[in-house]
Computed example of a mutant assay.
Amino acid sequence: MAESASSLSGDWRHNKLLKGVFAVTGIMVTLVTYGILQEKIMRVPYGVNQEYFKYSLFLVFCNRITTSAVSAGALLASNKALHRVAPIYKYCLVSVTNILTTTCQYEALKYVSFPVQTLSKCAKMIPVMVWGTLIMQKRYQGYDYLLAFLVTLGCSIFILYPAEFDMSPYNRGGENTVWGILLMIGYLGFDGFTSTFQDKMFKSYDMEIHNQIFYTTLCSCVLSLTGLFVQGHLIPAVEFVYRHNDCFFDIALLSTVATASQFFISYTIRNFGALTFATIMTTRQLVSIMLSCLWFAHPVSSEQWIGAVVVFGSLYTKSFLRKAPQKTSSSEPVQNGDSNNVKEIP
């Protein structure tokens, strides 16, 4: 009997280990690949004429139409209804702010390096806390504010003390670096609102994760396509991709890994909880920055190393100090390690 119990315990630990390896590998591969691809598409020229891809909204459209199709398939495969649970304007509101978030993220790469952009994302704790107070009437403890301050301080050091000769091709001489900073501030503000409002929708309605993803990404497809028509960028973007087959491959792979990452995010949270997910995401950001510095030869100043240590040290401290959340039913909102942040949609 004891041997049988020991065998069952060993099998459980083995299965848990395999699931953990699967989750970590999936998140790291998809999101790190996503980060490298977005930098390559926006900062590396294509073809003999050295043309740069400039159509950020086209990337948003490709990502969203892929995710929308997959989420619809997931709902149908699980025999879940495709009908709306919340008013359509609420899905549209999430969609609009999510489009603005992603567009700011891509556009920022024209003016700042990927390591700066990625580390700046860590500072979203403050806008999330602000929106959480305004929308959800949440209250935060003193150590939350302290950790948010330390992360923001580290990000500020990283941005304000860049290494020399790390200029974007759109930013010769560094005169437009301020645009990169403003775009990242826009990213943080819009992203904080998006995740907070997503959380509010999950708590206000009996809503499946794929239901929200389907309708918000469907709205994003319509809005981003409309934006491309209004700006007159749809035809030039298609022509660019037609001229450069390697760009088409990069965009197709970007949309694929962005969509696949959603599966691994949901899988990890469902099986291991928010605490483990937060730690994996922090590690992913660190690995992405290190790979970007090696792959694209970004120089890093000593001040930036100090800023990075402050940021990631604070984030890991936050992960280890956070109490493990209680398990929730599948109909309840699923949160990652950041307050109010339901899930990250690239």
Rank of each mutant, 00 (worst) to 15 (best):
38 Q>S: 11
19 K>A: 08
230 V>Q: 14
120 S>G: 10
22 F>L: 13
63 N>R: 06
97 T>D: 05
147 L>D: 05
334 V>C: 11
177 T>L: 09
31 L>R: 01
283 T>A: 12
279 T>I: 05
341 N>D: 06
139 R>P: 14
8 L>V: 09
312 F>R: 07
157 I>N: 02
163 A>F: 00
111 Y>V: 08
46 Y>V: 09
241 V>P: 12
72 A>L: 13
272 F>N: 01
28 M>E: 07
342 V>R: 00
54 K>S: 10
204 S>D: 12
119 L>V: 03
6 S>I: 07
53 F>G: 01
281 M>Y: 08
26 G>S: 06
35 G>Q: 09
86 A>I: 03
34 Y>T: 01
149 F>T: 03
201 M>R: 01
297 A>E: 08
229 F>T: 04
192 G>Y: 14
1 M>Y: 01
268 T>I: 06
325 P>A: 07
252 A>G: 10
26 G>P: 09
154 G>V: 08
320 F>M: 04
29 V>K: 01
64 R>M: 15
181 I>T: 14
328 T>F: 06
18 L>N: 03
322 R>I: 11
55 Y>H: 07
76 L>C: 07
279 T>L: 03
39 E>Q: 04
89 Y>M: 05
35 G>P: 03
230 V>Y: 10
50 Q>T: 06
78 S>N: 12
136 M>F: 08
44 V>M: 14
59 L>R: 02
234 L>D: 04
102 T>H: 01
244 H>Q: 11
